[in-house]
Amino acid sequence: MMEFFNTFLISLLVLSFCILMALIRVIRGPTAPDRVVGIDTVNTIVISAMVIFGAAFQEVIYIDVAIVYALLSYISTLFIAKYLEGGDF
């Protein structure tokens, strides 16, 4: 279904702009939790972008990678939060 190819590419362009804005927050953020929020947002947007990639190029492997990326980024967020909280694991 190549008729949507250009639409998907434009969406990807806008999504990469969103990632740039979140990265500004990661660089500027005054405290550590601010940076974690920025990283979390980047992760979710990357998952959406991978789903769009998979639909645009008709490759299911991108969406499989998106599922695994979602679960792994969730675990990493939990561990960073646990580290910021202090205390024992």
């Binding site: 980024s73 939990l78 939060a81």
Partner: peptide, 17 residues
Amino acid sequence: LTNPTGAHAIARAAHRS
């Protein structure tokens, strides 16, 4: 499933730190 739970963890860590 994962997004609100991660937000909850970050909020709790921010308040405790």
